[in-house]
């Protein structure tokens, strides 16, 4: 029931399971400068989203290159989460364009965005508490014929896939030290464990890109650092792309290749951590804005 303690085998150095496929053109060591990334994977252009007459997102534009870690920061109410939800289809944007891997995902429903290869986590963890941990994982896997009514009715042939997914899920759970909890209800997990479960679950969807909404919030610092380190390895070893919203600026600066800064619904700065740190608009937004 307690958060994993630092003296247990750290996630960050464990072997990456084969369950996680190689999804991007991983730069070979020395080939490219770290974090330069490949082609543009996610392109957000002039996205506008209103809520009851309030422009939560007011023409945001930025791009995320494949195989990079990008963070999205800004004061409270800057529109980061709204933008997240607009990109992932939870709050269909009013105007603008969003393309992923060259295809438009603008106003696509969340499930279609997920199937296109974008996995997301939520600000407040959304572990399915009345389901066992393993079911949380299995649920996330794509291409399950057993999820169709016909497949449910006549499960012959779906069993092999189920077995394979179960192994894959257990492998991932082991990595996050949740394998012993596989058959427990997710409701019995601690807050930190739920965060890990959500991360593992996102990986089960075999994503090309993962969107993390405040991954460090409510997690003990050790675990937070481990999550970040793990994210780095998935990026370098599997070519996965990450975009995350985070308030912990230290973590943001240490882990991002690119930082996108939002204020009042707009992108006010976009660049490497160093560039952003020196940007006067960013400093103004944080000091003069609604408070960070």
């Amino acid at each position: 029931m307690t958060d994993p303690t630092p003296d247990e085998a750290p996630i960050a150095t464990a072997e990456l399971p084969d369950a996680i496929p190689r999804v991007g053109p991983t730069p070979a060591a020395g080939d490219l400068p770290p974090g330069a990334g490949g082609a543009v994977l996610l392109q957000v252009t002039d996205v506008v989203k209103h809520f009851r007459g309030i422009r939560a997102v007011d023409g945001a534009t930025f791009a995320v290159r494949e195989g990079t870690v990008t963070s999205l920061i800004g004061p409270n109410g800057a529109g980061k989460s709204s933008l997240f939800n607009a990109v992932t289809g939870f709050y269909p944007p009013d105007r603008g364009a969003v393309t992923f891997a060259g295809r438009s995902i603008f106003r696509k429903p969340p499930y279609a965005v997920a199937r296109a290869g974008i996995a997301r986590t939520f600000q407040l963890t959304r572990a399915l508490t009345a389901m066992p941990v393993i079911d949380n994982m299995l649920l996330a896997a794509p291409h399950q014929r057993g999820e169709s009514l016909a497949g449910a009715l006549f499960p012959f042939g779906t069993r092999a896939r189920e077995k394979q997914l179960r192994e894959q899920a257990l492998e991932l759970l082991a990595l996050f030290r949740l394998d012993t909890k596989a058959d427990d209800y997710a409701g019995t997990l601690s807050g930190g464990q739920r965060k890990l479960l959500e991360f593992a679950r996102a990986l089960m969807t075999e994503p090309r890109m993962v969107l993390l909404d405040e991954p460090m919030a409510g997690v003990n610092p050790t675990l937070g650092r481990e999550l970040m380190a793990y994210m780095q390895r998935l990026r370098t070893e599997r070519g996965m792309t990450f975009l995350f919203v985070e308030h912990d600026l230290e973590a943001v600066m240490a882990n991002s290749d690119q930082v996108v800064v939002m204020a009042q619904g707009r992108v006010i700065a976009d660049g490497t951590p160093d560039e952003v740190r020196r940007d006067q608009r960013v400093i103004d937004a944080y000091l003069g804005g609604a408070g960070g």
Binding site: H50, A56, G79, N85, L124, Q264
Partner: peptide, 22 residues
């Protein structure tokens, strides 16, 4: 979703539009 709460305090209020909608 928690988002509405997060953005409710956003300073970018478009009052005219709000009135028109209502």
């Amino acid at each position: 979703m928690s988002e509405v709460v997060a953005t409710a305090g956003a300073p970018v209020a478009d009052v005219d539009e709000d009135r028109r909608l209502r």
